[in-house]
Amino acid sequence: MDAIRTEALTKHYTVGFWRPRPYVALDGLTLQVQTGEVFGFLGPNGAGKTTTLKLLMQLIFPTSGRADILGKPAGDIDVKRRIGYLPENPYFYDYLTAQELLEYFASLFGYSPAERRTRASRLLDEVGIGAERRLQLRKFSKGMLQRVGIAQALINEPEVVFLDEPMSGLDPIGRREIREMILRLRDRGCTVFFSSHVLADAETLCSRVAIMAKGRLVTAGALSDMLAFQVRGWELVVSGLTDAVLAAAKARGDVMRVTMVGPARHALDLPLDPPPEKTLAALIAQGACLVSLTPIRDTLEDFFVQQVSGAGGSRFRESA
């Protein structure tokens, strides 16, 4: 059974007051996410990621198509018991403390008062909210609200958790903590469906991704299988090489381009063949000192730019 399954899921909004026109926020999305997967839902802003998540949460209703979670239609009360959801830029009741908020949400799942308290405390520990949990949420920063948001999404030990931009508003340390938490969830057998516009988040976490642009699904599958993200070459930064050695390497075809990046420090563009280990070994033998070696490939941003410039056409439907 798929954890999440959508079929031709479509959402139109009507925009414009004087001349209302339907705007296609999501256009025929068909997607399957398997149980236990960490699934990255990627795309630039406005690609339809949040719309999809809201449709799955039944915060909005589809114009056509259907969405199932755990084999039942989205919005089913039984399904809601078994899932968690973090909205984009979450916001909560100003007048409650973090502890009270989590206990309130826990109560909605029918837990006993003692159980509510232990679950709330444990999750706040887990997302790194310390003594601040006794403060009213109005005093919380954006990053802290994001952490509380993640905690509340996990209050019922969900089988499927939906995270809308979980890394946004967090500093690098926070991002790493969230990544670790997602991996822990995966190890527990939880299906994680998260949206992001940052490729690096997906690369380190996801078994599979879907890439969205302009309300349409562009491609879905494992990132490593996607041609657009194959390694095209290597960038090698070395120091301590003479111009003669560099010229010789260039003449052999081992090095495509040389850029001076500092005193006696060069950045070299290497082709895929010969393998970079070989070229590196040869250069080290001639007195080079390794600074860094990184693969060259398209970033998600490059990919988005290509898609957005390539896929023309208006998202407004022509009204007959």
């Binding site: 949460m57 915060l59 809601k80 909560f92 909605l108 799942f109 948001g149």
Partner: peptide, 14 residues
């Protein structure tokens, strides 16, 4: 307006 409803409605309630 404050979007607190986004976290509330997906909880098990009608």
């Amino acid at each position: 307006e404050k979007r607190s409803i986004y976290t509330l409605l997906p909880k098990p309630m009608r």
